[in-house]
């Protein structure tokens, strides 16, 4: 773009300069052309002093202060976050501890209840066992009684059957012996 502007200047300026005579910028015969430079030096020195002693350092201070505030705030925020994290960790630990304690308590209660139930069941089983044994004994006694009762009935029936069949009374001891044998055979079967 510089090239374009320069080319345009070269194209335009000479024609204009020919029409006007000369460019005021090149008129070094005019004392004002160089006098403006002297005044420029004065203005620039004053501007430089104002900017370097007052303007720029003040802006620098403002920026520095802002950076300081921002970094301080960030540090505070970081510390707060750390604290919060620690609190959360502590909270989690407490919760875990409480949960462990509760679970232990529950397990203890369950074990106790189980032991209690087992003891009760054992006692009940003992009672039932005793009753069962007693019942069996009673049954056995009844059976023995029934067996004892069946012998004279069988002997009487056998002697009367033999009497009808043979017409003679069988020998008491022989009949009793055969009866015992038959009953024992049945018992064995």
């Amino acid at each position: 773009m510089r090239r374009i502007s320069t080319a345009l200047l070269l194209a335009l300026a000479p024609s204009a300069a020919l029409a006007e005579g000369t460019m005021p910028q090149m008129d070094f015969a005019n004392p004002l052309t160089l006098d403006q430079v002297g005044w420029m030096a004065v203005i620039l020195v004053v501007l430089y002093l104002l900017l370097s002693r007052w303007g720029l350092p003040e802006i620098g201070k403002v920026l520095e202060h802002r950076a300081g505030v921002i970094s301080k705030d960030l540090a505070t925020a970081r510390a707060a976050k750390l604290e919060a994290d620690q609190a959360v960790a502590q909270l989690n630990a407490t919760i875990a501890q409480a949960r462990g304690a509760a679970q232990a308590e529950v397990a203890k209660a369950v074990a106790e209840a189980k032991a209690d139930a087992a003891a009760k069941a054992a006692a009940l089983a003992g009672q039932l066992e005793a009753k069962l044994a007693e019942s069996e004994a009673r049954i056995e006694a009844a059976r023995a009684a029934a067996l004892a009762a069946i012998k004279p009935v069988a002997a009487e029936a056998a002697s009367s059957i033999l009497l009808k069949l043979t017409g003679s009374q069988p020998a008491e001891d022989k009949l009793a012996q055969r009866l015992d044998e038959a009953l024992a055979a049945r018992k064995a079967a």
Partner: peptide, 30 residues
């Protein structure tokens, strides 16, 4: 003192710069 019209413009430019700084530094806000 041969203070030219171009020096007037320079003075104006410098004045604008200083004025902008003065305005910008008025509150020194965060």
């Amino acid at each position: 003192v041969n203070f030219t019209n171009s020096n007037e413009a320079m003075l104006g430019a410098a004045a604008v710069i200083v004025a902008v700084f003065a305005l910008g530094l008025k509150s020194k806000a965060l």
